[in-house]
Amino acid sequence: MKPQTPHRRPGELVFALLIVVFSVGALWQSYSISGFSGKTTPGVFPMIASGVMVISGVVVLMSATQLPAPPEGAPGFLAEILTLRHMVVIGLVLAYVLLMPLIGFVASSAVFLFCSFQFLWRKNPLLMLALTGVTLVIIYVVFREVFQVVLPQGILLQG
């Protein structure tokens, strides 16, 4: 129930186009499962789902084209939607999930937490280091001991 934005958001058209392309690809993939060979084949339902995606995607695209373009001087895609902050955080998470199988949960989380605390909060690095340590200890105790979760172990570093 959000209010309808009077203007198109930056990048909205591209996003709408992308979802249409993705949906058409999904429809084609669904068709290649079992084609039109029967009404109860495994491919029928995926075709229905991706068909709905194509139709609704086209409607979304059409209504996006009907909206007026973002006003002159309004913040662009990189200033409003995918800001530097978002890119850095997504990059940090990507590095985190890729590092985790290599150096294990504790080491990778320590690096990730420290870097992102430092980047987002910009306080004294020593304070951030202490915060990272405390957070990690709490997470480790709660999840390893209370929830008994298996924490990811690394190939290079155990645990």
Partner: peptide, 19 residues
């Protein structure tokens, strides 16, 4: 502060998904 919350959510999410 959210600067602390956001990285925490991600770490908890990663552990949870892995588990």
């Amino acid at each position: 502060p959210k600067a602390v919350l956001i990285p925490l959510i991600i770490v908890l999410g990663a552990v949870g998904t892995y588990a």
